[in-house]
Amino acid sequence: MSETLTQRATPARDASARPRGRRRAPETIGLLVFLVAEIVFFSVQSPYFLNWDNWGNIMTAVAITGVLAAAGTLLLVAGQFDLSVGSGVAFVGIVLVQTAPSLGIVPAMALAVLAGLGIGLLNGFLVTVVGVNALITTLGMLGIFRGLTLVIGKGQSIFIEGFDWATARPFLGIPMPAIVLVAVIAVFFVLMHFTVYGRKMYAIGANPVAARLVGIRVNRVIFTGFLLSGACMALAGLLVTSQLGSSSANTGVGLELAVVTAVILGGTSLSGGTGTIFGTVVGLLIVGVLSNGLTLLNVDSSWQQVATGVLLILAVAVDRLRQAYLRKAG
């Protein structure tokens, strides 16, 4: 019954599903061509780029962003944002390192996961129950939890011992963060493309009023999306704390920009209703390969930030042009 209602929620989109699929194909191909061009360029410029260990470094570098971007794609498809992810990751980490000495690693991990879920719950409550705009809500939460992390950690880096699982390479020399990223991407791919819940998120992003009229509980569905984002914050917080062996108020700074860049660059529309996990993965790799390649070429990190900002602006510009084209076409 739910599936039928979801399919009815977007009759216009269902009727044009094939034409839209053809229109999206060039965009995906364009992203892949750009990624391949990056790989070829940096391969020619540096003999170390195609090294297996270097690709392990790339996957490790993009893992945290990728875990958060998976949930970010799901939310943006429904027309929602979560800009609190960076401070959420830092808060999860500080909860872990502060409680581990007294509680032990496993109870501290459980408490840290609850902290991440709590952030998602607060975001979801404010957006769906109180009715505060998602952008304002999550920007506010960004400041709140960055401040709380600073207060709890007293502005210092706090180290943790015996929590280095994310530094392991358990299979074929593949780093653990890369394995976690692949698992998360697989889960969200199935969730978005093969479940009723995923179709509901697309329907809400396409037309929330129509989705509500045909019986979709819009607020409940969106609330669940924010909870999933909180779960990804928790996982990312555990990953980054294990990688660094510490946490501080500066942990996760700039993750919001990195996540938004990957998601929008991958083709997820700011207007909601369209986007894929595959596109986000390609966008993530484009940013990761660019950063790694520039590092190998000894380009200053400040210019790497400039390049990331340019990519974000270009991605938003392309999204606007695509929306204008779709409105003209139909």
Rank of each mutant, 00 (worst) to 15 (best):
V209N: 12
A210T: 00
A210L: 05
A211I: 06
A211E: 09
R212K: 13
L213N: 14
L213V: 05
L213M: 15
V214P: 07
G215P: 08
I216T: 06
I216S: 11
I216P: 10
R217S: 12
R217D: 13
R217L: 03
N219P: 00
R220G: 11
R220F: 01
R220K: 13
V221Y: 03
V221I: 10
V221Q: 13
I222G: 04
I222N: 10
I222C: 09
F223R: 02
F223G: 04
F223D: 09
F226G: 08
F226M: 06
F226D: 03
F226W: 08
L227D: 03
L227W: 04
L227K: 12
L228G: 06
L228W: 12
L228H: 09
S229E: 12
S229C: 14
G230H: 06
G230N: 13
A231I: 07
A231G: 10
C232Q: 06
C232R: 03
C232P: 01
C232M: 15
A234K: 10
A234S: 11
A234Q: 04
L235R: 10
L235Q: 13
L235F: 07
A236P: 09
A236C: 09
G237W: 08
G237E: 04
G237P: 06
L238E: 09
L238H: 05
L238T: 10
L238R: 10
L239H: 00
L239Y: 04
V240C: 00
V240T: 15
T241N: 09
S242Y: 13
S242I: 06
S242T: 05
Q243M: 13
L244T: 14
L244P: 00
L244Q: 15
G245M: 10
S246W: 06
S246M: 13
S247I: 07
S248A: 14
S248G: 15
S248P: 06
N250Q: 14
N250L: 15
N250T: 15
T251M: 13
T251R: 11
T251E: 02
G252N: 02
G252M: 08
V253P: 00
V253I: 14
L255P: 08
E256Y: 06
L257D: 11
L257T: 12
L257H: 02
A258I: 00
A258G: 00
V259M: 13
V259G: 07
T261M: 11
T261Y: 03
T261I: 02
A262N: 02
A262K: 04
V263R: 05
L265G: 13
G266P: 01
G266D: 02
G266N: 13
G267V: 07
